[in-house]
Design a protein around this nucleic acid. Structure first.
Lengths: 250, 250
DNA sequence: TTGTTATTGATTATTTTTGAACAAATTAAA
DNA sequence: TTTAATTTGTTCAAAAATAATCAATAACAA
């Protein structure tokens, strides 16, 4: 039995029972335990399941059915690790910016009982945090349906009126040459967040490191720290520029 | 049983009873007490619960946002009639203000296919309209959890920058003596909406007519028309002041 | 054929998880 | 207040799971 077929079986099983364990999987599929583990790791890397000790679980069986939750399911495990590290940087009393990226969204779950103020342009973030301890400030302006967030001139003006102690941002790419985005819209918002916060964290998984898509919108000096699961080797050029690297490897 | 599964069980239990204690948890989940403690500590670190001596408590005593849906369900039939009439006043190309009242919220369902721009401070309205034809403008500022809407000075400033062709507003009371609200917050937002739109509609069911609760915040001249299911008799004093009455009786 | 590559399994070392024992801290009681 | 009972954090050890390395096999192309 080849991998694609096993993959299908594993996912079916997972869908039915909500979880699987390595031993039982190895037995049923007539493969060794290590192969079963390798399969699970590969599926976990694709964000199709959650790897646990001894097995795996469905991505999020108790998550809300919002469509933005689905988007963030890709690489959820890695993103969660990154966000755990990020959450540890946040103290009561902080005023933080959060942008509308899928990685930053996953930060919500870890800050729900912190006594902080969150300023954001992301509808999913607002929706997720509306009933918890954090105080919310909504950035006003034109609503972008695709990104489920507010963008445009008004949004930039709004941000400029506030000062945050920390900003948590995502980008489409980052290298020693600077920060990169797919669109002008996101670039200008990100820049506004960064310039109006005392300390800026970039949250990005390994896939974004070294990528330079489309638009270079800012220098590395715009951010103070990068929280990532990428290897040291890939980050050398960036660290040399004075950016703090926070490792978020599992 | 692995951690993710225990995590879910703990959270479920917490959700049901509001609190758990270590001993009982260890017993029910067939784990040692120290493991139970470790689980609770980890969940607490993620902000999913509050750690107490001997156990843990739910993180947010607040209620879920369902109460908004419940509120809108009250008198739904009457409110829908009012909103049907309101929707007929809206033409393609209009720029309209919508406030955060439960009546105005029900207007959403009737305008989803109109080619208009909606400017609102109501999170439920944004959520409801995010995936349809209307273009959305989000009013920025401090988020008020109770009302699920944005209020405050920033919101007022935001509104002042726009001009709408029509505003659709709710109030807590209206009589020939003017407009009434339960709180200063809502009053100032309503005033801002009304003064920045060419034509202002008040959406209110019969229960609001003649009521004068707490704060009188504006003259009747602030509105151009009232859409209501109330009898002509109750409205005489108001109509005399030049306010157009649109009947919305079933 | 031959060499290359991908897949799988076995072995070993490492990491993670768990529980027990005990000292420190906290709460409750006298 | 002091004392007793709980609860907790810490350290250590055992067990389980995992990652890493290497060898065997299968699939594939030249």
């Amino acid at each position: 039995m080849n991998f694609p077929k096993r993959k299908q079986k594993i996912l079916n099983k997972l869908d039915e029972y909500g979880e699987v364990d390595v031993k039982q999987l190895a037995d049923e599929l007539q493969i060794s335990e290590i192969t079963a583990r390798r399969d699970l790791n590969q599926l976990a890397a694709d964000g199709l399941l959650y790897r646990t000790h001894g097995g795996a679980a469905k991505v999020n069986p108790f998550e809300k059915p919002h469509d933005f939750a689905n988007k963030t399911a890709q690489n959820a495990a890695v993103k969660d690790e990154i966000c755990r590290v990020a959450a540890r940087q946040i103290n009561d009393g902080d005023v933080i910016f959060m942008d509308c990226g899928s990685t930053v969204f996953r930060l919500c779950q870890f800050i729900k009982n912190k006594k902080i103020k969150v300023i954001t342009n992301s509808l999913p973030v607002i929706y997720e945090l509306q009933n918890c301890a954090v105080s919310l400030n909504v950035i006003g302006g034109e609503f972008d349906k695709e990104r489920q967030a507010v963008h445009g001139r008004m949004a930039i003006e709004h941000i400029a009126k506030y000062r945050a102690s920390k900003a948590f941002l995502g980008v489409d790419g980052v290298s020693e040459n600077g920060l990169f985005a797919h669109s002008e819209k996101e670039a200008s918002i990100t820049t506004a967040f960064a310039t109006n916060s005392a300390y800026t964290y970039l949250l990005c998984d390994a896939s974004k490191i070294g990528k330079e898509p489309y638009l270079r919108f800012g220098d590395l000096s715009l951010v103070n720290a990068i929280i990532t699961d990428a290897d040291k080797g890939k980050l050398m050029g960036i660290e040399e520029r004075g950016v703090v690297i926070l490792n978020a490897k599992k």
